[in-house]
Design a protein around this nucleic acid. Structure first.
Lengths: 345, 345
DNA sequence: CTGGAAGTTGGAAACGTTTACAACAAGGCA
DNA sequence: TGCCTTGTTGTAAACGTTTCCAACTTCCAG
């Protein structure tokens, strides 16, 4: 820890005015001699310009905030990496905020942007209240939303059809011979939860699957631990009701992983007895035991696109808001191998 | 997006000087009448004080940076949560930086602190070069290191004995009847990698285990994918050499998870044929299939302590640097059940 | 030799806030 | 009444930077 010198001291040491010192360092018009003197003085003192003062003068911290509910979810980590990559080489720092389930924290965060902490916000909220929507609309810096917003608002947005993702998962299970499919969702009061619920019900009726309310259960959140708990409960309930299942669709990979553990704990083989699918296609899916079939929601691509939208808006603040949509893609792995390997026919 | 009003406008609307306006809002001496007028004017305009200007005047952005190599590692997420919790209710924002394996990025980050972007840094580096050590020493803001630093430097630090953690893992395996133990480490040029290597070799000789160099392999990094690749290679090598193993110690949970997948892929049952242990006791350990025995390195506790050290240093900038040590604890799960259940004796 | 162009320089203002200081009013006490 | 205390207010300086503007030098063409 050392005291940091300021431009006055550099200028004094170089024997020039602070205006000249500033120009010499920022590369404005200055004589070669002045530049040399100032550079040398700056180096000698270890001078670095103060970011706060510069920000105040210039307007614009070169910082963007990325806000998610749970940074522990690998899905968001994938987004984060993509955003960081996109913004990083433009000299923009990324500040990550894991807001958790407290809506107040999220609101505080958005409001804190109004005090000039950052130049922009990329947010992927799972719960959207009217307050949050208003806060986002009224934000003094550009906002890009990854996900849903219920009502149309004039904000740049990247979305993915996760309803369709669930439908794809169900279709895949049906195609590989499963008919008794259960669904472990996340909380229904979240946007992803609601969309996926719709997807399951649509697909179930489309494929004329018979299912009862006992086939659907909601985990407390989108984590593996919650998935395990919900999976245990689901299996117990269905066993009690005498309704066997041969497949589980999980609302995301973490829940899916928890569900597999629940199956194994209950003595059910995956995929022999029960097939399991996840959603998100996170890193864990490929290395789980067995590897988890999952529907990719293209987190990295969405992150990249969100960053690009934000950059575009920096350039042209008054563009019409844009809505980008990416399509889910199915990744088949061992957790949904057919009960009798197809090769045996 | 709206234009943001400043204090001048509030003062003008309230019919007072900006000094009075500032005092009224910050709660200094001001008459009830003035406070009322200013408050009302501020609310009417939607005024929020500008953080940059305030920072410039007051000194001190209320922001701290947390830097890690890979935010995708749940271990760091646990630290992050603890730090955020500790700093959050003191009104300090936490900015997360995932520096990746590029040393240059880390150096840039540390240097960027010298421009006044944040008031402090908590860093958990896995590779420490002399340059990095120097940059940390010369940093103008307080730094707390979670992890090793090779040489003693005058910086607050929280450490854990991960050498001992590996020894505990090996001891546990030996106690449960394993004798042919392999080790999948992370990169040896990292501090955790080096410490764990030492731990394995110490423990192996202490328990008089016979092992060849073929029993030790290094994954490319501390991820599950690298663990899977290394696990595959390890199994193939040992099979080629005709050296069977009955246990694998992995340098962290992600590698451990990858190792289990490798075993399963090679037709080895876990824990019946091969026991596997991880390190870190991250969330994934409890929900994996089978649940992974792991040695907790108390990530949350270390994060909390690091945050507290930083806060203490804010209070007293010239305290002597402190070194806190936490002890690892073993969490036994199904991945190391003895080959013959102990109950059968 | 003079006028202007081109290039360089320093003074001072600005960004938006907080606060030291002085001025002022009101009130109490001798 | 005069003096001191107490409380409130406004002016102005400060934080560290960038940049407008005017002044200065140098040089060249007329």
């Amino acid at each position: 820890m050392q005291e940091k010198p300021n431009l006055h001291q550099v200028a004094r040491l170089a024997g020039v005015s602070i205006a000249s010192a500033s120009r010499a360092l920022t590369g404005q018009s200055a004589s070669a001699e002045t530049v040399r003197k100032v550079r040398s003085a700056a180096k000698q003192l270890g001078y670095v310009p103060d970011a706060t003062a510069r920000t105040l003068r210039l307007g614009g911290t070169r910082q963007v905030v990325f806000a998610v509910d749970d940074i522990g979810n690998p899905n968001y980590v994938a987004m984060l990496r993509a955003i960081e990559h996109e913004l990083g080489h433009r000299g923009i720092r990324l500040s990550v905020s894991s807001t958790g389930r407290e809506m107040k924290q999220t609101l505080d965060l958005v409001r804190s942007l109004n005090v000039g902490v950052a130049d922009g916000l990329i947010i992927s909220p799972i719960r959207v209240t009217p307050q949050l929507r208003r806060a986002l609309e009224e934000c003094v810096v550009p906002v890009v939303v990854i996900g849903s917003l219920d009502k149309e608002v004039a904000i740049d947005r990247v979305r993915v059809n996760s309803t369709k993702a669930v439908e794809m998962a169900v279709a895949h299970l049906v195609e590989t011979g499963r008919r008794h499919i259960a669904f472990i969702n996340g909380p229904l009061d979240t946007n992803p939860g609601a969309a996926r619920q719709l997807g399951f019900e649509t697909a179930a009726s489309h494929h004329a699957l018979s299912y009862s309310s006992g086939h659907m259960i909601c985990a407390d959140d989108f984590t593996a631990a919650a998935g395990l708990a919900a999976g245990n409960k689901l299996i117990k309930n269905l066993k009690g009701a005498g309704e066997p299942i041969d497949a589980i669709v999980a609302a995301n990979d973490l829940i899916g992983v928890g569900a597999i553990s629940a199956c194994v704990g209950a003595g059910l083989q995956v995929p022999t007895d029960v097939a399991v699918t996840g959603i998100d296609d996170t890193e864990i899916a490929a290395v789980f035991n067995p590897p988890l079939t999952s529907v990719s929601l293209r987190a990295a691509k969405r992150g990249r696109q969100a960053a690009q939208l934000l950059l575009k808006r920096f350039e042209e603040p008054f563009r019409d808001p844009e809505l980008l949509t990416v399509d889910p893609v199915l990744k088949v792995r061992a957790s949904t191998l057919p009960p009798q390997p197809e090769g045996t026919y």
